[in-house]
Amino acid sequence: MAKLILNNVSKDFGTGRPAVSGLSLEVREGGFLALLGPSGCGKTTVLRMIAGFEAPSDGAIYLGERLLADSEKSLPPERRNMAMVFQSYALWPHMTVAENVGYPLKVRGVSKDIHRARIGEALDTVRLADYADRRPADLSGGQRQRVALARCLVTQPDVVLLDEPLANLDRHLRQEMEETFRDFHRRSGATMVYVTHDQSEAMALATDIAVMSHGKLLQVAPPEEIYARPEGRLVGGLIGRGAILSLALPDGAPRKIDWQALREGLDKPSPADRPMADVLVRPEDVHLSGEGLAARIRASLYEGERYSLTLELDDGQTLRAFSRHRPQIDEPTRVTITGAWRL
């Protein structure tokens, strides 16, 4: 295996705005990268260029030292040693599970002994060895998805590409399949690129998250870093929950802001000559406290183990917070904020 590298890649379909513009990133060997962003941001186009279904208009794609594509030439998909899993499982209904999994090997003319051994290994990896003789109609949606994963593995690909593979599953089955994907990645050691618009999926699965918007790459970082230290308002709003406050901060203020600086910025009128800063506040850092700033509870949503609150400060700005107890709407309260991040 080798590192997957996208160097200043662009794709223009001639619609007036590039679908992907100047995107550069590296997917480390054996890593699990989630391409995250809203619909139409270009993430599926990036995946299709990696797979070889689209050629870049500019830039280049490498797998280690091997050039896969640039603006002048592009290796066809079958010569890239990659496997792809789609939203629809694309299983042959008349074939058994083992026949579906082994079909790529049959096309390649692999010998029967190797064919049988690889099918067994792939089904073991996705824990479906006991289902080898069943047909897709006899399986659940999650089991069909695991058959599609096993079919990827038999060719021993350098990279596995996944295009919103959980989009057609219900919430309970998605959570179950997230565990399957984590286990699949750990057991197979494959490099994986996963397209999703669901930030909770990306946070749960990936070793790194690449956030995209309007065809551009905004930030690449591990989930913990991108949650705690997002770059820019769009990334801060897309990853996790929270509120973005606007307040005046002194020149040279650090990115990580403590309660004293926050209170001063919110409690006093903003100097006219001081620029305003966007500050991200996560709900777990907001605490109802008699020593804090005046606020009013504007909304409450019960989430099972807690209530999710929307709070309004005296200046009209809003915060998100959690509470173990049911509050009264429009009830006055006071809040302290234990930390925040300047975007």
Score class of each variant (00 low, 15 high):
M49N: 13
R233D: 11
D183N: 12
L128S: 09
R116Y: 00
M84H: 12
L218R: 07
A294R: 15
K256R: 14
I337D: 10
L161N: 10
T44D: 11
R187Y: 02
E305L: 07
R334T: 06
K73T: 14
E291M: 02
N7I: 00
L343T: 15
P165M: 06
R241G: 01
L166R: 13
L249Q: 09
P254A: 01
L68Y: 11
A148H: 10
D278F: 00
D70T: 01
E72R: 15
E305I: 04
G189T: 07
R263G: 07
E29P: 03
D124Y: 02
S88G: 08
L238P: 05
L162G: 05
W259E: 15
K256I: 07
G265R: 11
P104L: 08
G142V: 04
Q199D: 11
V211K: 05
A295Q: 09
P250V: 00
E284Q: 14
K106F: 00
L343I: 14
V159C: 05
H287N: 04
V110S: 05
E303Q: 14
E29N: 12
V159R: 09
R17A: 12
S140I: 04
R324F: 00
L218A: 03
T207M: 03
A295F: 02
P271D: 10
V126Y: 07
A137K: 15
E121D: 13
L293E: 06
A117D: 15
R263W: 02
I257R: 11
A69R: 12
P283N: 12
D183M: 09
P254E: 05
P18V: 06
I226E: 09
C41W: 04
A117N: 15
S200T: 14
L343N: 14
V195P: 05
H197T: 06
L75P: 12
G232I: 04
A204C: 09
E264Q: 14
Y131R: 15
D330K: 08
L245C: 08
T44K: 06
D12Y: 00
R241I: 01
L166I: 10
Q199H: 14
G40P: 04
S21H: 09
R274Q: 14
L266Q: 09
A137E: 12
H197E: 05
D170S: 04
P250M: 01
L166F: 04
A150I: 03
A340W: 02
P230V: 04
G22I: 00
D113I: 04
S289A: 14
W92I: 01
G242S: 07
P327I: 07
L311Q: 12
R118H: 09
V27A: 13
A202S: 13
S213H: 12
E65A: 06
M203V: 11
R306Y: 09
S39Y: 03
E26Q: 12
